[in-house]
Design a protein around this nucleic acid. Sequence first.
DNA 1: CGTGGCGGTCGAAGCGCTTCGACCTTGTCC
DNA 2: GGACAAGGTCGAAGCGCTTCGACCGCCACG
Lengths: 332, 332
Amino acid sequence: MAASTVSYVLSGKRSISPETRDRVQEAVRVLGYRPNASARALASNRSNVLALVIPLRAGMHVPVLMQFATAVVTTARRYDHDVLLLTADEGRSGLERVSQSALVDALVVMDVELHDERVPLLRELPMPSVLIGVPADTEGLTCIDLDFFAAAEQCVDHLTDLGHHSIALLGTPSAVYARQTGFAHRTLAGFQAAAERRGVMGIETPCEPTFDAVLGTVGELLEAHPGITGLVVQNEPIIGPLLDVLRRLGRRVPEDMSLMAICADDVAERQVPQLSSVTLPADEIGQQAVEALIAKLEGHRTSAGVTLVPARLTARASTCAAPEAHSERTTA
Amino acid sequence: MAASTVSYVLSGKRSISPETRDRVQEAVRVLGYRPNASARALASNRSNVLALVIPLRAGMHVPVLMQFATAVVTTARRYDHDVLLLTADEGRSGLERVSQSALVDALVVMDVELHDERVPLLRELPMPSVLIGVPADTEGLTCIDLDFFAAAEQCVDHLTDLGHHSIALLGTPSAVYARQTGFAHRTLAGFQAAAERRGVMGIETPCEPTFDAVLGTVGELLEAHPGITGLVVQNEPIIGPLLDVLRRLGRRVPEDMSLMAICADDVAERQVPQLSSVTLPADEIGQQAVEALIAKLEGHRTSAGVTLVPARLTARASTCAAPEAHSERTTA
DNA sequence: CGTGGCGGTCGAAGCGCTTCGACCTTGTCC
DNA sequence: GGACAAGGTCGAAGCGCTTCGACCGCCACG
């Protein structure tokens, strides 16, 4: 029994007679044989490892990042790959290191800025990569993300349909805008476009993730624009505090203030009242990212370019008809 | 110039003349040469990769886990290692896979239960490992964790010193106790021991991380034991809601209710009022874990066994003398 | 019955490094 | 001045796999 035969049994790259295959598999089982990953990688020029780049930047909400990461790892395992974790602004040099040393076969890059310094590098590297997020110039890149523009539009449309004509976007911390993070910008653009299209007043403000900041931001917002009756939130950690702040300010949700969130469904459903939301399907996005990478690795000349996961809105208990509309109806 | 010479320059395992060294380094720089990781691993029997096992179990607070993970990655990089991410209860089989295939050199295992099924496996694996957390039987293991027993004791002592004699531990979600997670159990034990030693009444209750659960749990707690004036919280995500609940229940912090947390310092300082706390130094623990692993890899016959990071209490604005003591003092 | 083709197996040649022992040079000491 | 040691460098032998081309025996067809 030649070593090569065993190799072919394990990889399935050549046809093997059933008897031989069984004999090999039995022996593998009995001996508890595991191919040496380095030898395999050296000979085959494939490490079966993906790099996952998570820059832990200020203002990013960790549980969401972790949800992406988990989806990436889980999916990678399904395609027989492992995941190397890159963080902490090793940034460019980290990418160069792991790719040029052939430690990994491909890269998943998260938390992408509009003008991300890593993007030019990704174009040069002799290695497939997928971005979770969309930079300004997507030439030659494969990107996947939620369609945040549409997400914001749908929120505005939903509120406008309910009769609200003065609504605000309570966005991410300002640091996230400052560094021009893609998803925050696209949400903002969608919000503005939809507000204009529908002819409603749209105010935007960033918001830091502390109780006091929420209290201050929302307080000022409602003082400056008392007519606001609809809120769109893209900022998971402030959701809890926000509900408290509104309560404290005497605004009932949804009677006095309709509230929409762009967040994971379980987060929306965990609140009281349950929030109408556009879902952020981290699982789905992480999975698709890995699948796109695997396809690239297998040489499928498929779908480069940007894949935007369609926004899906679920109306729950935190939105209702605008107060004016409501009172009109009751007085009618 | 022999390849071996280059290898010796890069590894420093043999002395090289300064001229040769410079010449090699210059060439490496100019050519942008990077050693192939697989070839290196195959020849040297060292992959320079550590596995980090993060089972994302119910009730674990993700940001804290991520803080550990970041510390591990950062420290690993300082020792020229990378980190492979293992999650999603690949559990035992994942450990076997990466170690037997020599994908990694060593293992960091987080979120350890008292009777963790992975522990026997770790003893058998031909590969060093470090646990972040402490199981019941530590024979042959290297563990590192905060001294949660002492942490709880210090909280009780601090409150008792302030004159509180009826205090409660608001613990982790019950799922965490149910699976006998080490840190939760040791905190509980420390709390009970200290309460007994100091002769104060100590009540414990788990708490789920939702606003309603906090409201319910704390409501029932204070109804059943109205005399409680001190609270110890080991459950990061409920800290925000808890402050709101206490406000809603008309208990001022710290005047009516002293509050201690076991959590990261930045979390304690971000609250209003800032919380007296025993710090959970995830950075330090993650770093020490990696350093212990590296030491093992280098064959230092050092410190097996359990390393408990001493608990450090910082008094901030959320604790003060017990109401009775206070009134006694003011009436005196 | 002879021949061509094909499915199945094998041997050997690397993959790109590390490491060992050998070798050469130079300096040092008697 | 010669022998020896130490310091530097080199060549070759692997590390454990994958993969290529060759080979062998079998069946089907002419």
